[in-house]
Simulated scan of single mutants.
Amino acid sequence: KELLDKELISANEFDYSSAERVYQSDTEDKRGVDLFEQVKKRTEEEKKGLESRLERFMAIAEKGEGNPENGEKLFQTCLLCHSVGDKGYDYAPALDGSALRENEALLTAILDPDAALESSYAIYRVTKNDGSNIEGYLVKKDERGTTIGFMGGTKQFVQASEIRFEGFLGGRSFMPKGLIDSYSDEQVSDLLAFIKTLK
């Protein structure tokens, strides 16, 4: 609540359960009430949006008309964080065996990464003494400081003496939402066709 007051964090960084916990810690505190209402409203809007997008993409997936070769080119973006065989990075779960996943589970993971989040792949935030934030994948943390990784494999080390506080942002995936929202139906179909080759 103090961080919210100082505007060091915003309501967007809370998922439903974490906002609910803040609210339930003192149901009379207006800050907790306001936070919970904001997050509840945002969650409901996101759910409606996800359902309509999932419906659209499921219809494309069920046709199964994509070109895997074209899809492989689009898939290179995924390798900035995920790995397949000996390619890519381990900032996100390996995608080997994705051919075995149901279309709905696969599309939900792409459209709403937070819903399928594994805790070790949550965003990690370091807030420095100057108030600036660094967000990414937690590569390493020890008494010297913290190393954060970013898409494409770049890393940044922050000395312990420069860190005010740090931690995982609960419920928020390292993977951005909406990665395929701007894709045409043909591109989505091609990408899914290639993913279906990952045995």
Rank of each mutant, 00 (worst) to 15 (best):
F165L: 11
F75L: 15
G149L: 09
S182N: 13
E20T: 01
S10H: 10
K196A: 15
V39Y: 01
E135K: 00
T197C: 10
L106R: 01
L107A: 10
I163Y: 03
K48I: 11
D90Y: 14
K48N: 12
D34Y: 12
F174Y: 10
S189W: 07
K199W: 12
E62R: 15
Y91E: 15
E13R: 00
F150Y: 12
S119P: 15
L8F: 15
E2K: 01
E28H: 02
A193G: 14
A109K: 01
G71N: 06
F150C: 11
K155E: 07
L4N: 02
K87Q: 13
A160G: 09
T197Y: 01
F194Q: 03
R172V: 05
A99M: 15
D29C: 11
L74Q: 04
S120N: 12
A11V: 02
S182H: 13
R42Y: 01
D86A: 09
Y121A: 10
E13I: 00
C81Q: 15
Y137N: 09
D142E: 06
K155A: 08
S119M: 06
A116K: 05
P176C: 08
Y23V: 04
N70S: 06
S83Y: 12
P113L: 09
D90G: 07
V158H: 04
Q187P: 14
P68D: 02
E51V: 08
Y183W: 02
Q156S: 14
T146R: 05
M175V: 05
D114M: 06
A94Q: 11
L198C: 07
Q156T: 11
R31T: 13
C81A: 14
Y183L: 11
R31Q: 05
V126K: 01
G136V: 03
G131P: 07
E118Q: 14
L50C: 08
T77K: 03
T108H: 02
Q159M: 11
F57Q: 08
V126S: 01
Y89H: 09
Q76N: 07
T154A: 07
I134H: 00
K155L: 09
L80Q: 11
G64K: 09
E46H: 06
F157M: 13
G178N: 12
L3W: 02
E65D: 13
D96E: 05
H82C: 08
M151W: 03
L192F: 02
E102K: 10
S10D: 10
E13Q: 03
P176L: 03
S52C: 12
G85P: 05
G153I: 11
D181K: 04
L111P: 07
K6G: 03
E102T: 08
L74G: 09
S119I: 00
K47I: 07
R56E: 13
D90K: 05
S18I: 00
R56I: 06
P176F: 06
I163C: 13
G85V: 13
D112K: 15
V33A: 14
K48L: 14
S83M: 12
S189E: 05
K40D: 04
L79I: 14
V22I: 13
I9Y: 00
T127A: 07
G85A: 12
L35M: 14
T43Q: 04
T197K: 04
R21Y: 05
L8K: 06
Y137K: 14
E51N: 08
Q159E: 10
D96W: 03
A92T: 12
P113K: 06
Y124K: 05
L107R: 02
Y121L: 07
